[in-house]
């Protein structure tokens, strides 16, 4: 890679106004990316394997510019559908390789699970997120459905270092054979006694309620807790931990913002001149109008999507708060227009 790097850095005098990446990627599509704001990281799908509950694991080979990741972090994945780029975020489920496990629900996930053959070149954003392992006190993983994915990333990372530490893992899924990574989790449970897997099969036993927590995990208050799953679970857990005064021991991973309610209005995108009548988030409105919107986690955490507001006001869809003065940097992924507004993008 050293020689390639030099070529790419020095070679632009020969390729201007294009980049050496643009020519190198004709030889190998992975030899382009991460350089300059407009050359995106690429990854090739190396393998696709089916998992439980209509999900699939994709093994990705990232191209030049990939800086690695920590188990538990997420990655933005760009997929082209009908000629149009769509972005979603997925937890990385392997410590050394770039693998994502996707449940085939929704436009993008469905495309990844069912219509993404080996060899497809996807786009990536750098890994991000602080939903990562911190050693110290005993741990509790509270996961449901495909929310198991970041926990799996952490468990696999820990297993590579040695026997698993004291972790109680309370996981909900519809039924036993609907548990994504079920066999692997059960094997870890059998192999490393400090790791205790408690399965909740909700089709038979109903949804987990916080009142059951004391019985299922008596020492939950002592544990550093990581929670990932549907919005209802996240909300219940957050409330429960907050009322117990333990919210600093809780790590929450969301894949969509918790929506209270958004506004609507006409959004103008000053640099391209595009306009869109929107009752969605500003990010979605811009993307639909063909504007190059910066984006990251798409759930209000990473601030990778901020754009200066030129005029008007926006509403935070998570809280319903209306705010904004000209020049404010707004998070487009969790803001909707509150009446007409203009963005400097």
């Amino acid at each position: 890679m050293g020689l390639l790097d030099t070529l790419v850095r020095r070679g632009s005098a020969l390729t201007t106004p294009f980049l050496p990446d643009d020519y190198l990627s004709m030889v190998n599509p992975l030899w382009s990316g991460g350089r300059g704001p407009t050359r995106e990281l690429r990854a090739r799908v190396e393998a696709v394997s089916r998992e439980a509950a209509g999900s699939a694991t994709l093994v990705l080979k990232p191209g030049l510019g990939w800086d690695g990741h920590l188990p538990g972090q997420y990655v933005g994945v760009g997929v082209e559908i009908g000629g149009v780029r769509h972005w979603r975020t997925y937890s990385l489920t392997s410590p050394d390789r770039v693998t994502i496990t996707v449940k085939g629900l929704g436009l993008v996930s469905n495309q990844l699970v069912r219509r993404t053959p080996v060899g497809t070149v996807l786009r990536l954003r750098p890994a991000a997120g602080d939903f990562v392992w911190r050693s110290g006190r005993p741990a509790l993983f509270l996961t449901a459905g495909s929310g198991v994915t970041p926990a799996m990333g952490m468990l696999r990372g820990l297993v590579r270092r040695g026997p698993l530490p004291d972790i109680t893992h309370l996981h909900s899924a519809l039924a036993r054979d609907e548990v994504i990574f079920g066999p692997e989790l059960r094997r870890l449970h059998a192999t490393y006694p400090p790791y205790r897997l408690v399965e909740r099969h909700t089709a038979a036993d109903g949804l987990l309620t916080m009142s059951e927590l004391d019985a299922l995990v008596p020492d939950w208050r002592e544990r550093e807790t990581w929670v990932c799953g549907p919005a209802g679970l996240l909300e219940a857990v957050s409330d429960h931990w907050t009322s117990a005064g333990l919210s600093e021991r809780l790590h929450v991973e969301r894949f969509t913002p918790l929506v209270v309610g958004g506004g609507s209005g006409l959004v103008s995108f000053a640099r391209t001149g595009a306009q869109a009548q929107a009752d969605s988030t500003l990010l979605e409105a811009g993307e639909s109008a063909g504007v190059l919107m910066p984006s990251g986690c798409r759930m209000g955490i990473c601030f990778g999507c901020v754009v200066p507001l030129l005029q008007g006001q926006v509403r935070d869809v998570r809280t319903g708060d209306v705010h904004g003065e000209p020049g404010d940097l707004v998070q487009t992924c969790i803001s909707s227009p509150e009446g007409d507004c203009a963005l400097d993008v």
Binding site: T16, P17, F18, P37, T38, R39, E40, E80, G83, V84, R85, H86, R271, T272, E287, G290, V291, L292
Partner: peptide, 17 residues
Amino acid sequence: WDWMRDPEVHSTTWDWD
């Protein structure tokens, strides 16, 4: 080609000879 949302084929990022 802006509708593709591909920053490598977009009116705001393209440069030419």
